[in-house]
């Protein structure tokens, strides 16, 4: 019969358990850091820059993101691995472009969400984190947002898994909700690591809240609640347009798309 070298053995379950543990640890690191920062924030901001909070935000979120990458990356098939650089190119090219304009949006997650829809939440999370890591090669300020980007990828994958990309109008709704969660989680990074936001337009919104006497974290969280949900709604809608424009053979090569019937049978009608 068949010689073993030409065929692959069935995948072993033991390795999967170890990876699941790493995933949970990563998620715990991110959640724990967030809770600690929110509980401890008031005393901190006036204590001057470089305070312990910046270090805790940085290390907690980074460790969490790295654990997620370590857990997920080795499990991805080559067909997903080669798509990650494509996603990163889309993220960086669009993000760099929009960040330089005076629009209070980022649009730096189109590639991440695209992967999440095609390959699932785990791949989406890893792509989000890697996107921040690789982008920091040109712009080190995005590195601390790796955990937030991973969360967006994971939530987008879950939205796809539960059929929110089957109807064109549901995608922006899912994006809006994802944006709320993502914005709230990323706000402490902006507040404690940067002491503000990295764009002028978003900075103006924060200033408005600060002038009403909000704490820095509250002001940035409110700004995030204004920008992020709209931003992610636009991103999810754009990704829905893109995945339905892909030839079916291309999208159906991904087992995640087939198994969970991510896309509707036929492209839904949408305004052009």
């Amino acid at each position: 019969m068949s010689s073993p070298s030409l065929t692959l053995p069935s995948p072993a379950p033991a390795a999967a358990r170890k990876r699941r543990v790493l995933e949970i640890l990563g998620a715990l690191a991110i959640a724990g850091t967030y809770i600690y920062l929110v509980l401890n924030q008031p005393a901190d901001i006036t204590g001057g820059p470089g305070s312990a909070s910046a270090l805790i935000a940085l290390s907690g979120f980074l460790v969490g993101a790295i654990l997620l990458v370590v857990a997920v990356l080795p499990t991805l098939p080559t067909s997903t691995m080669v798509l990650i650089p494509v996603a990163l190119v889309l993220n960086i090219v669009l993000g760099q472009f929009v960040g330089s304009t005076l629009v209070p949006f980022y649009l730096d997650a189109i590639g991440t969400v695209l992967i999440a829809v095609l390959a699932g939440p785990a791949a989406g999370a890893a792509t989000g984190a890697l996107s921040s890591i690789v982008w920091s090669f040109f712009n080190p300020t995005v590195l601390p947002f790796a955990a937030g980007a991973a969360l967006i990828g994971c939530l987008a994958g879950l939205a796809a898994r539960y059929g929110l990309f089957r109807r064109f109008y549901l995608a922006p709704v899912a994006g809006f909700l994802t944006g709320i969660i993502g914005g709230v989680v990323s706000a402490p990074v902006a507040a404690f690591v940067f002491g503000g936001t990295s764009g002028v337009a978003t900075g103006a919104i924060v200033s408005a809240f600060r002038s009403m006497g909000d704490t820095l974290l509250a002001a940035i969280t409110k700004q995030a609640l204004i920008s992020d949900p709209m931003d992610k709604a636009i991103v999810f809608a754009a990704v829905a347009v893109l995945v339905y424009a892909l030839p079916r053979r291309a999208s159906l090569q991904f087992p995640f798309v087939r198994r969970h019937r991510v896309l509707a049978g036929k492209a839904p009608e949408q305004g052009s």
Binding site: I45, T46, G195, T197, G199, G203, R210, S211, D214
Partner: peptide, 16 residues
């Protein structure tokens, strides 16, 4: 943009 944003934000509005 980062430094400008910081200066505007904290230079003008710092309730503390």
């Amino acid at each position: 943009p980062l430094c400008l944003s910081l200066l505007v934000l904290h230079g003008l509005f710092f309730p503390e």
